[in-house]
Nucleic acid binder design. Structure first.
Length: 471
RNA sequence: GUCCCGUUCGUCUAGGGGUCUAGGACACCGCCCUUUCACGGCGGCAACACGGGUUCAAAUCCCGUACGGGACGCCA
């Protein structure tokens, strides 16, 4: 039997990080087992539905690199089929009409708090149709088993058992004639040939309810795998108050999709001591055996460390492309031809030091601006003392035939010997500030080489002018 | 309240009766490297929730307790 998994997001306007993880595991399992990974949009809530919201989801999947094997299906489009199934179950005596009013139900809910049983007391389950009050549109409820117990053999949670008397005669068709989620999911999953339902364990209890529908319809039930949820750093359900929850927010913070995938995979799942796991690798080793049952807390520090790793590994051209939007947005920089040349030359030195693309962009700025602005730290290095040092350095650089790593180093060391008792740092820090506008940067020998003699000298001169003007 | 699930270093986890004086990763601390910040290298701190069983032997199996989470909609 070939495996079919599915990802059924409701279009809420964002792709929650937890949903992204669910999608990832569905994708992994399907692909690892040579099966299919399908997408279905749960858009039955028409009030909330919008095309943009659907697109956000699909963009998210694309960004993560999770290719699906179908044209994303609309649950709403299958509405009539759901209704038909509800009536088939009704005709087969597996379901019945219930004429309770919302008020009656509310009353029952109150009462049930003491009994520990489902709220609805099944009062219409065996009542003849002739008792139906006039003018009330009934709902259709499924007949839950009354005795015994049901066991679900979950791939992650193991055997989960519940007493059937805990199961309620849930509504499958609303009084307005629309199908409920429980019905729609089951019908769609069945129709789409879904063999494995992999989802968050907040759905574990739903499994028993959904299985009632499978049984009533006489359909084969899928295999279930309920994944532990992601919690915030404080152990509570991961939500907005923990900061970012949307995939696009993580993207905006400068995380690479492969880093996020790696992180999300390892959250609740492990394969021995392996930490760095690409999707490719995961496809070779993924299985539910390595899955944990307990919820895991989200840890930005670890995500960042993974991100730093993947930035180091990333192709330079790709990084430049990724960094451009941040540069434009945060600094109004559009990369020029010379800027591009410098970035290409300097990226190796830059990318080893950044944990996020945002940081990478920030650290790239000095290669791209026409005029350096000095931050507070830089200002400390730009004073009367250093100005005379910079003047001498400027002169030395001008006399160099060629500025490359070695010649620059030789010149700097010589200057340090002459003027700073051999302390290289004394001459490098003013230079660093002059060239980069701050006190942190990649190796200056490299920076000078990349900027070139002309630009280097221009910047040193600008720093000298700046100091004189300031004093 | 009822039902379901869970509990190994701060965090993610390895572990599936003896090899555990419990391993790895991130974070943290120290040292080294060094023109800065990083990177890198080396080292350190740090955990089996608690109580009972079962067993020659339990982090591993069973039962309780505590704590945490999830679900209890004519939402999805």
């Amino acid at each position: 039997m070939s495996i079919v998994t599915r990802f059924p997001p409701s279009p809420t306007g964002m792709m929650h990080i937890g949903n992204a993880r669910t999608a990832l595991f569905n994708y992994l399992y399907a692909r690892a087992k040579d099966g299919k990974f399908l997408v279905r949009i749960e858009d039955t809530d028409r009030a909330r539905h919008s095309e943009e919201a659907v697109q956000v989801i699909l963009d998210g999947l694309e960004w993560l690199g999770l290719e699906y094997d179908n044209t994303p299906e609309s649950q709403y489009a299958n509405k009539q089929r759901h209704i038909d199934v509800a009536y088939e179950l009704l005709a087969a005596g597996k379901a019945y009409k219930c004429y309770c009013s919302p008020e009656e139900l509310e009353e029952m809910r109150e009462k049930s708090k003491t009994t520990g049983l489902p709220a609805y007391d099944r009062r219409w389950r065996d009542r003849p149709e002739s008792d139906a009050p006039a003018g009330i549109d009934p709902v259709i409820r499924i007949k839950a088993p009354l005795e015994g117990f049901t066991i679900v053999d979950d791939k992650v949670q193991g055997e989960v058992k519940v007493e059937n008397k805990q199961l309620d005669d849930m509504i499958i068709l609303r009084s307005d004639g629309t199908p409920t989620y429980m019905l729609a999911v089951v019908v769609d999953d069945h129709d789409m040939g879904v063999t494995h339902v992999i989802r968050g364990d907040d759905h574990l209890n739903n499994t028993f309810r959904q299985n009632m529908i499978y049984d009533a319809a006489g359909w084969e039930k899928p295999t279930y795998a309920h994944l532990p949820l992601i919690h915030g750093p404080d152990g509570a359900k991961f939500s907005k108050r923990h900061g970012a929850v949307g995939l696009n927010e993580f993207q905006a913070m400068g995380y690479l999709p492969e880093a996020l995938c790696n992180y999300l995979m390892r959250l609740g799942w492990a394969h021995g001591d392996e930490e760095i796991i690409s999707i490719q690798r995961a496809l070779e080793i993924f299985d539910f055996d390595g899955m944990n049952k307990a919820a895991a807390r989200f840890d930005y520090a670890k995500l960042e460390s993974l991100n730093a790793h993947y930035i180091k590994e990333a192709d330079n051209e790709r990084l430049i492309d990724l960094v451009s939007p941040f540069l434009q947005e945060n600094h109004d920089i559009i990369i020029s031809k010379t800027g591009l040349d410098r970035l290409q030359a300097g990226m190796d030195g830059l990318k080893d030091r950044s944990k996020t693309l945002v940081q990478l962009a920030e650290e790239s700025v000095f290669y791209l601006v026409d005029e350096i602005t000095y931050d507070e730290k830089a200002l400390k290095n730009l004073n009367l003392d250093s100005s005379s040092l910079l003047k001498e350095m400027l002169n030395d650089f001008k006399n160099l035939d060629e500025v490359h790593h070695d010649s620059v180093e030789a010149a700097c060391r010589a200057l340090a010997d002459r003027r700073a008792e051999g302390k290289l740092g004394k001459v490098m820090m003013p230079l660093r500030s002059a060239l980069t506008g701050t006190d942190k940067s990649p190796s200056l020998f490299e920076v000078v080489e990349i900027l070139g003699k002309g630009e280097t000298c221009t910047r040193i001169q600008a720093a000298i002018d700046f100091i004189e003007k300031a004093s």
